[in-house]
C-alpha cells in the first residue's frame, strides 16, 4: 500500500472522530480546552503507535482464537504506562483528564487499529498507520477543544483574547455535543 496514503487517511478521509465516530467519549469528555484535548490526543496516539508495533510483532505467535484478549492486554499495559508516567510528570494534566486516561483501553478505535490493521500488516506500515490515525485523533480533539475554548471562554490554549464571559454552554456538556455536531458537518463538507 502507498505509505503516504496510509499516513494521510487518518487525518481527514478516515478521521477516527469526525468520520468513523469512534473514541467519542474522550473526544467529548476531555475537550474543555485546546490544551486538554491535545494532551488526551497525544496520550492516545502513544498508545495506538506502541500497541500497533507490538501487535504487528506478535501477530504470528498468537493463535487467532485468543488474539483479542492478547491485544487487550498489550493495549492495557501501554495505557497503564501512560497513566503512571503522566501522574508522575504531568500531574495537573493527569488530574484534568482523570478517568479518561484508563479508559483509553476501551477506546474502540485503538483496539480497532490493532485488530483491523496491525494484525494483518507489516511492522513499518503499522507504525505509519498508528501515527496517522493518532495524529488524526489528536487533530480532532485539539480542534474540538479549541473551538469550545474560543466560544466558551474567549481563549485559545489558555491565552485570553477577549476579557469577557464567553458562551458558557460550550464549556459545559451540551456544548460538547453541539460543537462536535457542527465540526462533523464541516468535515463531511470538506470530504466531498
Amino acid at each position: 500500500m502507498d505509505q503516504a496514503k496510509n499516513f494521510t487517511k487518518g487525518l481527514i478521509r478516515e478521521n477516527p472522530v469526525f468520520i468513523l465516530m469512534l473514541g467519542l467519549c474522550p473526544a467529548l469528555g476531555t475537550t474543555t480546552s485546546a490544551f486538554n484535548g491535545m494532551g488526551m490526543g497525544l496520550a492516545t496516539m502513544f498508545v495506538v503507535i506502541m500497541s500497533n508495533i507490538v501487535v504487528s510483532l506478535i501477530k504470528n505467535f498468537v493463535p487467532s482464537k485468543v488474539r483479542i484478549p492478547c491485544y487487550i492486554v498489550v493495549i492495557a499495559s501501554f495505557v497503564t504506562i501512560v497513566d503512571l508516567v503522566m501522574a508522575a510528570f504531568m500531574s495537573p494534566l493527569h488530574e484534568q483528564l482523570g478517568l479518561f486516561i484508563p479508559l483509553i483501553v476501551v477506546n474502540c478505535f485503538v483496539l480497532g487499529r490493532a485488530e483491523a490493521f496491525a494484525s494483518k500488516n507489516t511492522l513499518w506500515s503499522s507504525i505509519i498507520d498508528g501515527t496517522g490515525m493518532g495524529l488524526g485523533f489528536t487533530l480532532a480533539l485539539t480542534l474540538l477543544g479549541a473551538s469550545r475554548e474560543i466560544l466558551g471562554s474567549n481563549a485559545i490554549f489558555g491565552f485570553q483574547f477577549l476579557q469577557a464571559d464567553g458562551m458558557l454552554v460550550f464549556v459545559l456538556a451540551p456544548g460538547a455535543f453541539i460543537a462536535l455536531g457542527y465540526l462533523i458537518a464541516l468535515a463531511n463538507k470538506l470530504n466531498k
Partner: peptide, 21 residues
C-alpha cells in the same frame, strides 16, 4: 443537507444534555 445523519443527532443529544442540566 449538510446536517443530515450524525451532525443533527449530535446536536439533538446536546439539547437533551442541556435539558438534563
Amino acid at each position: 443537507k449538510g446536517m443530515r445523519g450524525n451532525p443533527v443527532i449530535l446536536v439533538a443529544a446536546g439539547l437533551l444534555a442541556l435539558a438534563f442540566m
